[in-house]
Simulated scan of single mutants.
Amino acid sequence: MKNALLKLTFCLVFLISSAGIAQALNKKSLTSELGKTEGISLDAKQKSSFDKANNDLVTGLFDLDKKKLPQADRDSKIDGLFDKRDKSLSSSLGADKYTDVKKKTDKNIKQLKRKVKLAKLVL
C-alpha cells in the first residue's frame, strides 16, 4: 500500500510539473524556441524563409488551439503543422542546408512538439 501511494504521488507530481512547464508556452517563447539554429549560419534570404516558416507554424498552432478539438485530432494536426514547416524549410533552404539545420535542431524540435501537445497556448 505504501509503495502504491508513493508511485501515485510521483505520477501526480510529474503530471503537474509537465503541465506547468507546458502551459508557459506563449507566442513569443514559442517563436524564440523555433528560431534557434544552433550555430548554423543562414544568409538573409534563408533567415527570412526560416522565420516565415516558423511564424506560419506558430500562427497555425494558435489557430488550432482555438478550435477545441479532441486531443487525438489536435495531436495529429500539430504533427501536420510541424511537417508542413519541415517541407517549407526543405524547399526554401535547399536540401544540404536543411539537413544541417535539422541535424542540429531535431532534438529541440521534438521536445518543443511534445510541450505544444501538452500545452494550452496563450497569447
Rank of each mutant, 00 (worst) to 15 (best):
K87L: 05
K87D: 01
K87C: 00
S88Y: 00
S88V: 01
S88G: 00
S88E: 05
S88P: 00
S88W: 00
L89F: 05
L89N: 00
L89I: 02
L89H: 00
L89A: 02
L89D: 00
S90I: 00
S90G: 07
S90D: 03
S90L: 03
S90H: 03
S91Y: 00
S91T: 10
S91N: 07
S91P: 01
S91W: 03
S92K: 03
S92F: 05
S92C: 05
S92Q: 08
S92P: 02
L93N: 00
L93R: 01
G94Q: 08
G94T: 07
G94H: 11
A95E: 13
A95Y: 12
A95Q: 12
D96R: 04
D96S: 11
D96W: 08
D96E: 14
D96L: 12
D96V: 12
K97T: 15
K97H: 13
K97D: 15
Y98Q: 05
Y98A: 07
Y98F: 14
Y98D: 03
T99M: 14
T99C: 09
T99Y: 12
T99F: 14
T99A: 15
D100M: 12
D100S: 14
D100G: 13
D100C: 08
V101K: 01
V101W: 04
V101N: 07
V101G: 06
K102H: 09
K103N: 14
K103L: 08
K103T: 12
K104V: 06
K104R: 14
K104G: 02
K104Q: 11
T105N: 07
T105A: 15
D106C: 10
D106Q: 13
D106G: 09
D106L: 12
D106K: 11
K107P: 03
K107R: 10
K107M: 09
K107F: 11
K107A: 14
K107G: 10
N108E: 12
N108K: 11
N108V: 04
N108H: 07
I109E: 05
I109V: 15
I109Y: 05
K110A: 08
K110D: 09
Q111E: 11
Q111W: 10
Q111D: 10
L112R: 04
L112T: 04
L112F: 02
K113V: 08
K113R: 10
K113P: 02
R114A: 14
R114G: 12
R114K: 13
R114Q: 11
K115W: 10
K115P: 02
K115G: 08
K115L: 15
K115V: 12
K115Q: 14
V116P: 00
V116T: 04
V116I: 07
V116Y: 01
